[in-house]
Nucleic acid binder design. Structure first.
Lengths: 222, 222
DNA sequence: TCACTCCTCAAGTACTATCTTGAATATAGA
DNA sequence: TCTATATTCAAGATAGTACTTGAGGAGTGA
């Protein structure tokens, strides 16, 4: 077998991995799975497609080695194969944000205007948590908080926040976080809190980035 | 327009960027362009396809924002849009190497058995260059050396190395480097040098990684 | 302006991807 | 063992991708 043919096969294999990410629904699945493991039924709800189609896409991700599975009773849980996959997903978003013409327009259409929302960086938040003068709220679905969250963060899924604002201590700044830079939950949370007269900012990115930066995290006792 | 629809479009855009890398020939093009800019005719030779097909793939990469162009006379030079793209390509290779079943087998088939070839890390090589007790040889094509190389490296393309071994100073270790971890030139160079009784190692990766690590580089005077 | 070079575009063919629907499989609990 | 639940598989319509060949543009230099 010639070198050309073997080289082509090697680079085809790299291409297969990229191709697995080369579909919007699979990209959404990776974004959700970066929060922690989930079963097929939950994931089909996240991407708004049938269970059969979701299963099909998950199989494509598994064949490329991006995700692995675990069975628990009748349910099958999918998770990212490693934090490397999360790194790859972050690198892809960075390139797209920097060089793809339409990302800015689409991000504004999806997330709304962020120029009025103040953000806080990871390092600063870590200091503020250590100093104890901030309340950190995880506004992702409860399952994602259970799978892993910023140490000390309180879980208030975005759809329950309006009812629970009153439970948050007064006079303390609130920092909301969610899945990452293209997740709308924390933006919605900060807008709601500001309307209620609270001081609030969003973490500039989300839980996966915090985790990859090796900052303190916690997991629900199993 | 519903949130679902806008979110789908946003993630479709991420998918488009990944899809651009989702082809072996385009992956090869990115790997070559990580060395520096090249024109279409050269690139078609690198991937072993017609100029028309190469142009087609380059257009796909440009549409995704991964590469940009510059005209010089009748020639059009393509280059990576930024070092972010090089980061993305490295992240993709890492994931593929860690999780894709066939990469190991294909890499061995293409590169040969590397277990007998000693490698040297970037940090150690930088120290040795500073100490001046090593000869660094760039075995990539001359055009890539001209576009940028490790500071102090001497250009000896792999196909000229056999004739030029005698010009290398005796009694000094030789370090060969090329395009990256999946490039065969440096392996071939080290094997040839060892057969000629020289002490030789390969740099563990290649020029793009050296550049991204912000270690000293040089460019040919224009 | 003309011929030349380099590159892109268009048309055509074979192959691959995405989604839907309905059936098949695997486990849990009665 | 039987039924219910969760997931995967198979078939099929539609659309998109990858490559080839040949024509079309854009710049260079006589």
């Amino acid at each position: 077998m010639g070198d050309r043919q073997v080289k082509d096969q090697l680079f085809d294999a790299f291409g297969e991995v990229a191709k697995a990410l080369g579909n919007g629904r699979r990209a959404e699945l990776i974004d959700v799975l970066a929060q922690g493991e989930r079963h097929v039924d939950e994931l089909s709800g996240e991407i708004g497609h049938s269970v059969a189609n979701t299963s099909f896409h998950l199989r494509a991700l598994a064949n490329a080695g991006l995700v692995t599975t675990r069975r628990d009773g009748t349910r099958i849980y999918y998770r990212l194969a490693s934090t490397r996959v999360s790194d790859l997903w972050a690198a892809l978003r960075d390139v797209a944000a920097a060089h793809h013409e339409q990302i800015d327009r689409l991000a504004i259409a999806y997330l709304g205007d962020r120029t009025r929302l103040e953000q806080i960086g990871r390092a600063e938040l870590a200091e503020r948590i250590a100093a104890g003068d901030v309340v950190v709220v995880d506004v992702r679905p409860a399952a994602e908080h259970a799978a892993g969250h910023i140490a000390g963060a309180r879980s208030i899924p975005i759809n329950q926040l309006a009812a629970k604002v009153k439970d948050l201590p007064a006079g303390v700044e609130v920092v909301a976080y969610c899945r990452g830079p293209y997740c709308v939950f924390a933006d919605d949370a900060v807008r709601l809190l500001l309307r209620r007269g609270r001081t609030a900012r969003r973490l500039e990115d989300g839980f996966p980035e915090w985790q990859r930066a090796e900052l303190p995290i916690e997991t629900a006792a199993s």
